[in-house]
Amino acid sequence: MAKLAAVLATTHHPFYLKATTAPADQQIPEAPEWKRKVEAYRDTLTKAEPELLVMVGADHFHQFFLDNYPQFLIGKSPRYDATFYNEEREFGIPKYILEGHEDLSNFMHKGLLARGFDFAFSNELKLDHSIICPIITTRPQADLPVVPIYTNIFAPPLPSPKRFWDLGRAIREIIDEYPSEKRIAAIGSGHLSLELGGPRQFRETGPDPEFDRQAIEWLSTGNIDAILANVTHESMARSGNATHGFMDLILMMGIAGPIPAAYSDSLSLFHTMEAYITWYPEGAAQ
């Protein structure tokens, strides 16, 4: 059976690449520390020696729009183009091509259906920065095949936080049952408190630093009970209108299980708090 080598839950700050590759005299003051923290986080994936990645993200109206927006969707392509024109324009993120893994995509899709998760699917999915940002930060060589999973954290009405946790648990069971000797890592990106297009955007910190501190504590201690007791769509909206991306971090903890993280780090930046969490559900990486 496949081995779940690592589970990573991280925020995706689309300006990381631009901020850390600009000429030194044009960089924001936090850029060197940001780079150090990201590279330390990358090591938590590298040392798990993954061979295949299950990637969790959310389409930001790049391929999918309100005429047909999936609650949950799995990619089933042999390969994936990534980065849309308007992401290159705004964030300076380059284009990528990632190899897919059709066998695990199919196994995952059937396993999800069997567990009551009636996923939409795409045989021609183009990935956006929710998946490419964590590739840039944790696997910049972009050399491993991926199985992308998209969630709706963006176009209300949204699935519940509990549903994201349960989906993570289901994905874990399916990875554990996958008949392969591969070492699989699951990497998902979301947000802590975040405001976009509203009165609290682009401040010196994220809109709700207290929520951010609490959320990192919950994730790093595997405290799903506290999350489900405290986090609702309404509470996330009070923390910032785009905070619902936190549910993808809940999903990732669902893949790991209610266990303490092996690694937890954060960085307060303008506009948002960054979080870098890694679990090794089957013990420390070798």
């Binding site: 109206f61 308007n86 705004e90 176009a155 976009l196 297009g197 509203g198």
Partner: peptide
């Protein structure tokens, strides 16, 4: 109007 669409287009 969706906050992400509005922010993105006016940044552009």
């Amino acid at each position: 109007a969706h906050f992400f669409l509005s922010l993105t287009i006016f940044i552009a």
